[in-house]
Design a protein around this nucleic acid. Structure first.
Lengths: 114, 114
DNA sequence: GAAACATTTCAACATCATTTGAAATGTCTG
DNA sequence: CAGACATTTCAAATGATGTTGAAATGTTTC
């Protein structure tokens, strides 16, 4: 992954509504969910939602397809995974020991909540 | 990790100069490097650099200490690792299979969580 | 203490991101 | 085709971010 691409993805995720939207789409799985459902869950006006979904889409984090009158958005899991790989390489590449603070006290919470 | 915290870290990394600066600090390891050296490598004016380092610091991604007349910045590896864990949980939590596209192509994962 | 050095603070400006409301597009139903 | 529905597009207003240059702060050396 190119640096610029990583920056775009990071920027796309670096916003409340968008991170929420993306998380909902993760939950929805591959089948995705209609924009209207997202707008309702996030309490966003439809145009505001479109704005944010466009950013996610530009970053390659979601895809859209039309289904009847609804637009169905779905998370692009691979993009997220590529980002994680990139960050892992940037952070720990060649120096895994640096990512573990020396105390031995490994504090890592699974499944943080909002 | 709280969502707001993740958003701040993502925002801090979602910028060219800052991602570059952070990567240099990763390379520098725990001992860190002086602001002046960073400014030279990144071709940033000292005040511009301070601006960006402040943001990285606010996000908890770097620490500073004074050493003589230099300010030594160092990456905070744990913060980065926490972010990666957060993203991994958000992306794959409970559904690891979703992060593997069906092609069978082997894809690298972030450091094991849990 | 004065001069040089390393960095930060401040203020002004340009640019980009976000929110809002109104209008437009495309799709389904009868 | 008209009317309702789902979503997008457009434009204006507002706020956040990034860049620049000048001045200020703290530190070392003499």
């Amino acid at each position: 992954m190119k640096k610029q691409s990583a920056v775009s993805i990071l920027a796309a995720l670096a916003q409340d509504s968008r991170l929420d939207a993306f998380r909902l789409l993760i939950e929805a799985g591959r089948q995705g969910m209609p924009a209207g459902h997202l707008a309702a869950s996030l309490r966003l006006s439809p145009n505001a939602l479109t704005f944010h979904l466009d950013r996610l889409r530009d970053a390659g984090l979601v895809t859209v397809r039309r289904e009847g009158r609804s637009m169905i958005y779905a998370a692009q899991f691979e993009t997220m995974n590529n980002l994680i790989s990139y960050l892992t390489d940037q952070c720990c590449g060649g120096r895994p020991e640096l990512c573990r603070p020396g105390t031995g006290k490994v504090r890592r919470r699974a499944l943080a909540s909002s």
